[in-house]
Amino acid sequence: MTRAATERSIKINVRNFSFYYGDFQALDSLTLGIGQNEITALIGPSGCGKSTFLRSLNRMNDTIPGARAVGDVLLDGKNIYDPEVDVTELRQRVGMVFQRPNPFPQSIYDNVAFGPRVLGTARRSDLGDLVRQSLIDASLWDDVKHRLHGSALNLNPGQQQRLCIARAIAVKPDVILMDEPCSALDPVATLRVEDLMRELAEHFTIVIVTHNMQQAARVSDQTGFFWLGRLVEFDETERLFSAPREALTEAYITGRRG
């Protein structure tokens, strides 16, 4: 599962990145490299900045008044905070799955077709195939193939979350950000999403925020531990959980702090 450090190719290179909400500093000069086709898990207590960091990777924080970023986030070597970067194009390349499943109140088909339609990335005649393939890749096709035009809101939460994953991959992003994607799901649905993540990692780079340390240990290649806006430790998942370098990390993963 883990690769030797020399083989890693870095997809997102974060250098001295800080983030502010008004006067409040939420992130304090983070530096890390997120590897291509790896699953990177971000762990840490609530309010430690891991979600803020995740949302700054596709600039979803832009919508918050007073939010300000300092430092570089290089996606394939290009700074996404450059003034000339087109945010909608960035978000097409860096998709996102949210904590609570948020399918639109439309049909299953329209949900998946939403991205290709607004971005104009698929020809009309190819749209059906694209929707089908996205649903297959999100391991939802068998559940919904007979009711593609039924409302997405009639799906159960686990199916809704996989629909949101299908919606995200339909625009063929490079990176998928997942913000606690399983926290609203039951254990069975959670395991299905985790299996799905491992399959998706063959084609996408995945960054996941999770409160569940077993989940981080199960699915991720690399893990970063956040504490009060700082990245305390970032390492291969196996090493971080078996032999953490920092005392704070050890205290957190063994449940003594947090």
Partner: peptide, 27 residues
């Protein structure tokens, strides 16, 4: 209309107008 719908559309790369026209208004 829940904020999650707007976030979902914006996160795919929809512009603000596309989000309003295709997600918020129908909802």
């Amino acid at each position: 209309v829940p904020k999650e719908y707007r976030d979902g559309a914006l996160a795919i790369g929809a512009t603000q107008w596309q989000t309003i026209w295709r997600v918020v208004l129908p909802a």
